[in-house]
Design a protein around this nucleic acid. Structure first.
Lengths: 211, 211
DNA sequence: TAGTGTTTAAAACGTATGTTTGAATTTCAT
DNA sequence: ATGAAATTCAAACATACGTTTTAAACACTA
């Protein structure tokens, strides 16, 4: 089947180039050249550039969303720590076609772009398609942080998201920087190991009222 | 003086549009139309679109960098908590043409773009122009976190940067979301108030070795 | 006021983009 | 093996972009 080959080659090339240069800066000619397919193939198989962008996300998010939803079913009403809840998310992520650390970094970079270059159509697509699973996870977070006000919880979730997306979006160059400045070679899983206690501690922080 | 009017009108329009849509998605025609000036004015006054982008950053960063450098001189070898050090940064930010919360949000959005859409030329421009002040602040951070290894410190700094930039980049829509979901109207300074204990707690987090 | 340098204006240039077209080719069930 | 459907291909289309050009309008000194 020549079709699926072409479709996957386009998706592979697109996700690479998107994560490197962003959506607008990546042309269909860049993509089709790198994929080794004809220019018109994108519009033939996906309809438009916008639909291609959505397809790149769907390829990862759909299997992840399904698996994560099952995981959430399993841990219903168990005792959980913030670290455990974070670990559940990351474990599931790395079992949805993102086992490869490089792929994982690429995906996080795409996720960051989805926010910063939020094309509107992408925002709508993601929330309409995967919003429910996200809300279910949020409910688990609520359970383990009863001491937080809704406002505190709301913002801390987004602070966590920001720390994760931002750093993982440029994890390659940051690891290179760490190597250059500190002489220490890291791997993506090491960074994730650094990230989790940071996030957990931030989430559980207690207000400090001494001005 | 007709010149300065045109230059400032261009800078105002450019920073608005850049922060809304990103650099590549904002055309010179968008900018000059919004600014009410001729299309050629950008190339005449700034030389190129790239130089305009740099000028937008320089307008805020140069006064900030100067003031922040002075502040760092003053607090040399004083006792400091993480909160105090963070507060120093934010106070100085809001005293460098960013008193207005809306302006502050716009600036943070631009900062986020500088990372995610890092045009190469922008990265070079920013580090060559303002890298020294950043390094001095980093040294202050080192002083108050002697318990951290260099690697831990390195990553936590970037986690903090990510949380701040990411959330402040879309602080408008997030505040609207908080209002919609929780029925609570916030202001930018409230969000900053939420952010600081989160960052401080994350920075000072202690490793948790019970798997 | 005359003249010189600076700024604005309208138009065009060359290039790159996303998309569409229609013919050629391949695929595959009959 | 044949014919219909699916796919690939080269080419062109329309549009938008950053930049350049040339002339007009302006500001200010002498």
């Amino acid at each position: 089947m020549a079709q699926k080959d072409t479709v996957e080659r386009i998706l592979d090339a697109a996700e690479d180039l998107f994560s490197e240069k962003g959506f607008a800066e990546t042309s269909l000619r860049n993509i089709t050249t790198k994929a080794g397919v004809n220019l018109a193939a994108v519009n033939y198989h996906f309809g438009s550039k916008k639909s291609l962008i959505q397809a790149v996300f769907a390829r990862y998010l759909t299997p992840f969303s399904d698996q994560f939803s099952s995981q959430l079913d399993l841990i219903q009403q168990q005792e959980r720590t913030p670290e455990q809840l974070l670990k559940l998310l990351l474990i599931t992520l790395t079992k949805s076609g993102l086992e490869n650390p490089a792929k994982f970094a690429v995906f996080m970079r795409l996720l960051g772009l989805a926010y910063s270059q939020g094309q509107g159509h992408l925002r709508k697509f993601l929330t309409s398609e995967y919003g429910d699973v996200f809300k279910r996870y949020m409910k688990e977070i609520n359970r383990i942080t009863p001491q937080l006000t809704p406002v505190e919880r709301f913002w801390r979730i987004h602070f966590m998201l920001g720390a994760a997306v931002f750093t993982m979006s440029s994890v390659d160059s940051l690891m290179a920087m760490a190597d250059h400045d500190l002489g220490i070679e890291s791997q993506v899983k090491d960074v994730v190991g650094q990230l989790m206690p940071f996030l957990a501690s931030g989430l559980m922080a207690v207000e400090n009222d001494e001005s």
